[in-house]
Simulated scan of single mutants.
Amino acid sequence: MNIQLRFFASVREALGTANETIDVPAHVLTVGDVQAFLRSRGGVWAEALGADRAVRIACQHEMTAATTPITPGCEVAFFPPVTGG
């Protein structure tokens, strides 16, 4: 299944890309699975999206939990927590 990925702020800077279209394997069913799949690339991917990192995930422009299912063509976005002042 093809999905759209978006990366923002420090996540984008660490990965060196703002977006990507990928075909995820059949076992990738949720946004948490997408994050784990991207971490499996190793290197900066494992570091920027690591379990010890505070990374927020949105699916279809809505903040979501790791258990949210993905659908064909959906957009999954990763970004650091944001605070205002």
Rank of each mutant, 00 (worst) to 15 (best):
G73H: 08
V31A: 08
T21H: 08
C74K: 01
V82C: 05
A51R: 10
E75P: 03
D23Y: 00
C59M: 11
V11K: 01
L29Y: 08
E13L: 03
V11A: 01
A65R: 14
G16Q: 12
L15N: 01
T68A: 15
G16L: 12
R53V: 10
R6N: 09
H27K: 07
E13T: 07
E47M: 10
V11M: 05
M63C: 09
A46H: 11
P72F: 06
T21Q: 14
A14L: 12
F7L: 02
E47A: 11
V82D: 05
A77F: 10
A26V: 11
F37R: 08
I22P: 01
V55W: 08
C74P: 02
A54K: 13
G85A: 12
R56V: 14
H27Q: 13
S10E: 10
L49N: 08
V34Y: 03
T83R: 09
E62Y: 08
G84S: 13
A54R: 14
V76N: 03
A26E: 15
T30I: 10
L49T: 07
A48V: 11
E13V: 02
W45R: 09
A36P: 05
V11G: 00
I70M: 02
A9W: 14
T21R: 14
H27T: 07
V76K: 05
G84W: 13
G85L: 11
G32P: 00
G32L: 04
R39Y: 01
A9S: 15
F7E: 01
T64N: 08
L5R: 11
I3A: 03
C74M: 07
T71V: 15
F8G: 05
V31T: 13
L29H: 14
A9T: 12
I70Q: 01
F78N: 00
L29G: 11
Q35T: 06
F8P: 02
P69Y: 12
I3D: 04
I3T: 04
R53Q: 15
G85P: 14
F79G: 01
V55D: 03
H61K: 04
G43S: 12
G50R: 03
E75C: 09
G42D: 13
G42L: 05
V31K: 05
D23R: 02
V76C: 04
A77G: 05
V82Y: 06
I22H: 02
V28W: 04
H61F: 09
P69H: 11
F79N: 04
F79H: 05
F37Y: 15
I3C: 03
A18M: 07
G84H: 12
A46E: 15
F78C: 00
D33S: 05
Q35F: 02
T64L: 08
H27P: 00
D23A: 07
T83Y: 11
F37C: 12
I3E: 07
D23I: 00
A51Q: 13
V55K: 05
V24W: 07
N19F: 08
T21D: 09
W45D: 05
I70D: 03
S40V: 07
I22D: 01
A26H: 10
V28M: 03
M63L: 15
G16M: 12
E75M: 06
H27R: 07
R39C: 08
N19G: 15
L49S: 06
L29T: 15
A48Y: 14
